[in-house]
Simulated assay, not measured.
Amino acid sequence: MKIFNVVFCVLFILFAALQWNDPDPYIWMPIYLYGAVFCGLAATGSYYKGWYLFGILAYLGYAIYLFFTKDGVLDWATEHHAENIAGAMKASTPWIEDTREFFGLFILIIVLLVNFVHASQKKAKKMRKKMMKIG
């Protein structure tokens, strides 16, 4: 888990840095830095289930919005035939930006979910050990 979290901490810092020239860096830099901070803490063995859950729910809500909004992921998939999102972003293709943002949130949600599950398992294991000592 340490390598997993170090890798994603570095990636999320890079993703945040790449947002500098984005039209809305004040939204996306904190989103990615949130993931970086909690991956960095997890890499040191500090897990915060409540904060993972908060991030998962917040990002899931925003991802759902980006999925269904006009020029969102659903429009990209249906009306624009899943056009290549790796190309240049133009004012005439706003669905590319929303789709990229959706997949960024998806990555964050998965990473936070992995840490949430790991933290839950770690806590359950600690509780079992405690119960074994008592019993």
Rank of each mutant, 00 (worst) to 15 (best):
A17Y: 15
A17R: 09
L18F: 14
L18Q: 09
L18T: 06
L18I: 07
Q19T: 05
Q19W: 07
Q19L: 07
N21R: 08
D22A: 11
P23E: 06
P23G: 04
D24P: 00
D24Q: 14
P25F: 12
P25T: 13
Y26G: 05
I27C: 06
I27S: 06
W28I: 03
W28N: 02
M29A: 09
M29N: 02
P30F: 12
P30N: 10
P30H: 09
L33S: 08
L33V: 15
L33T: 11
Y34G: 04
Y34L: 10
Y34T: 10
Y34E: 02
Y34H: 03
G35Q: 01
V37T: 08
V37F: 15
F38A: 03
C39E: 03
C39W: 01
C39G: 03
C39H: 00
C39N: 14
C39K: 00
C39R: 00
G40Q: 11
G40K: 13
L41C: 06
L41G: 02
A42I: 03
A43N: 09
A43L: 13
T44G: 05
T44Q: 12
G45W: 13
G45K: 12
Y47H: 12
Y47N: 07
Y48A: 13
Y48E: 08
Y48F: 15
K49A: 07
K49V: 08
G50H: 04
G50N: 14
W51L: 15
W51I: 15
Y52S: 04
L53G: 05
L53P: 00
L53I: 10
L53N: 05
F54H: 06
G55V: 04
I56H: 01
I56R: 01
L57F: 09
L57E: 07
A58K: 04
A58Q: 05
A58P: 01
A58S: 13
Y59E: 06
L60F: 12
G61N: 12
G61I: 11
Y62T: 06
Y62I: 12
A63Y: 04
A63W: 02
A63P: 08
I64K: 01
I64F: 01
I64C: 01
I64R: 01
L66H: 02
L66C: 11
F67K: 01
F68C: 04
T69M: 10
T69Y: 01
